[in-house]
Write a protein that binds this DNA or RNA. Structure first.
Length: 224
DNA sequence: AACCAGGAGACAT
DNA sequence: ATGTCTCATGGT
């Protein structure tokens, strides 16, 4: 079985096991973008608290985020951790977002141009950029995160040390181009995350005999 | 009480 | 290109 076939097979199994996930958890495109930055190496529960603060102070817009003092913004972001770093990153992103002309202007850009633009922002790396492209702009990129590496390494389908871009290509190439690609990529990434969180408590993990904890007791190699 | 969470950048080698 | 540090709160 080829790698692409394996990737398609796992998607079917995850979808059957968990059903549609209806991602991203966020009401507007801009909220999704903010969430993508705040969730960097951070539990989603803590991101929700930070976003709740922004809503509470009517600051969930690029203009409002740029209008307040950075220290005050950082204070609202406290629950999501790395608050000084993330305050700077959010400001960088908002500055870029507005100078590029906002949601419609960005949505009209060719996909590679949009992606390069996002990556040019200090604080937005490949995963955050792809979260934004897929879930806020609803355009076809596959998001690679630590869970994706872990799950597919333990399924022995992919090497966890693969470069981000080549792993992204592996997933994107497994699905023919077409209008439903966005939905498949959306659902697949969500399923990987949900499964990775769930499988430690699951009776029938997909990978035989091994859970997905970062340091699985039945494994010798520590990382992933 | 360690370990972990939907990363990214700076910097040295 | 490839490692190592740092950033920080909250749950288990």
């Amino acid at each position: 079985m080829s790698t692409a076939q394996g990737i398609r097979a796992i998607f079917r199994r995850l979808h059957q096991a968990y059903g549609p996930q209806d991602w991203w958890p966020g009401d507007t495109p801009f909220e999704i973008m903010v969430g993508a930055v705040l969730t960097q190496n951070t539990a989603w529960r803590n991101v929700e608290r930070a976003i709740a603060n922004l809503i509470k102070y009517h600051a969930l817009s690029p203009e409002a985020i740029l209008a307040v003092r950075p220290e005050r913004l950082a204070n609202w972001l406290k629950p999501s951790g790395y608050f000084n770093v993330k305050a700077g990153r959010l400001r960088n992103f908002c500055r870029w977002y507005l100078t590029q002309g906002g949601l419609e202007a960005l949505g009209a850009l060719p996909l590679p141009v949009l992606r390069e633009g996002l990556l040019s922002v200090n604080g937005i790396g490949p995963e955050t950029a792809d979260d934004i492209i897929l879930y806020a702009f609803e355009r076809p990129v596959f998001v690679i995160d630590a869970y994706t590496r872990r799950v597919f390494a333990r399924l022995v389908l992919l090497d966890a040390a693969m470069a981000y871009e080549s792993m992204r290509a592996a997933f994107e190439d497994a699905f023919a181009s077409g209008p439903q690609r966005v939905q498949v990529f959306n659902e697949y990434h969500a399923l990987i995350v949900v499964h990775a969180k769930n499988v430690c408590r699951s009776r029938r993990p997909l990978c035989q005999g091994c859970c997905l904890r970062t340091r699985c007791p039945s494994r010798q190699d520590g990382a992933l």
